[in-house]
């Protein structure tokens, strides 16, 4: 709460700069129009005409808010112009992929922690894969799966699963290894078997690491889905809204889709943060 005032100030400054930039960037068009009609441009006209254009270079914040509101509430949910519809297309693929990817990641992490050969073979590749722009293969996966007859939600889900997979593996391995030798020895003196020491020590102590990597993973999943929507020729989803907006110069549509994606990402990360708080509180780790 004590950060509220500074954050609000920064946000207000950003909005003010945004308005100024909108006036500045859109003014060229206004001057052009005025010169053609042979009239002078007063400051009032400039302000009035730069902030309400149909296809501005930079839409003003209220135009984006208007576009967002129209997209969410102004249409029927099933309409092709509804952001709820497109958002749902993106969200469903993201969630499916994220669940598959993080489940597989957790399983692989358990394997890595308990099997030395697996650790030494897979772990360097898992870490190296984080330095590779995996997103570049997204269009290829989509097109190859399309040519195999797999369409719809599955190809996008595969990409988002792939993107959330590696952060979860790396984070979960770190988490499962976080108990120190003293704690592991303690369990040994209690004659705990492998399953018990996993369930009662390793798994609980991995939770903070798991949630941190789940947050990274879900953000990556969403980006993967959006990029996965680009090559199929703008059919449905927030990515296709971005692409069709950029084809037809509909800047307001691009910005509205961008903010819809941002809200979606913030919501997903927030949900995981909430789950994290609940789990950690239940385990007595949170303050």
């Amino acid at each position: 709460m004590r950060n509220l005032l500074p954050v609000l100030t920064v946000v207000l400054v950003i909005i003010a700069v945004w308005y100024l930039a909108a006036v500045r960037l859109n003014s060229a068009w206004v001057y052009d129009q005025a010169a053609r009609e042979g009239r002078e441009v007063m400051l009032v006209d400039l302000l009035g005409e730069t902030l309400v254009q149909e296809r501005p270079v930079l839409p003003a914040p209220h135009q984006v808010a208007q576009g967002l509101y129209d997209g969410v509430f102004g249409q029927k949910v099933t309409s092709k112009r509804s952001l709820v519809y497109h958002g749902w297309v993106t969200l469903s693929a993201t969630l499916l992929g994220f669940v598959i990817g993080s489940a597989a990641g957790i399983l692989l992490a358990v394997g890595i922690v308990y099997n030395r050969a697996m650790d030494m073979s897979v772990m360097p590749w898992a870490i190296a894969s984080q330095t590779i722009p995996i997103l570049a293969i997204a269009p290829m996966i989509i097109v190859v799966l399309n040519s195999l007859g797999v369409t719809g939600i599955v190809p996008k889900a595969i990409i988002s699963a792939y993107l959330s997979f590696f952060p979860v593996v790396v984070g979960m391995v770190k988490g499962l290894r976080s108990p120190d030798a003293m704690q592991l020895d303690q369990l040994r003196t209690w004659n705990a078997n492998g399953v018990q020491s996993f369930g009662k020590l390793r798994l609980p102590s991995s939770m903070p690491y798991l949630f941190a990597s789940l947050k990274v993973g879900v953000a990556a999943s969403l980006v993967g889905t959006i990029v996965g929507e680009l090559p199929t020729g703008a059919v449905a989803g927030l990515g296709s809204r971005l692409l069709s907006g950029s084809y037809y110069g509909q800047t307001v549509q691009i910005w509205a889709a961008l903010f819809a994606a941002a809200i979606l990402a913030a919501g997903l990360v927030g949900l995981i943060g909430q789950a994290e708080r609940m789990v950690l509180q239940r385990m007595g780790l949170a303050r």
């Binding site: 004590r2 950060n3 005032l5 500074p6 954050v7 609000l8 100030t9 920064v10 946000v11 950003i14 270079v57 997103l135 947050k215 953000a219 969403l222 980006v223 959006i226 990029v227 927030l238 971005l242 692409l243 907006g245 950029s246 110069g249 800047t251 691009i254 910005w255 889709a257 961008l258 994606a261 941002a262 990402a265 913030a266 990360v269």
Partner: peptide, 29 residues
Amino acid sequence: PFLQRGLLPVGNFVAALPIVGVAPIMVMW
């Protein structure tokens, strides 16, 4: 410290957003 408390939450928030989405805007500009 005031700017830090204001900018860091905003920065952390923005860092989690799908920023590649600004690509069409930048291409236009």
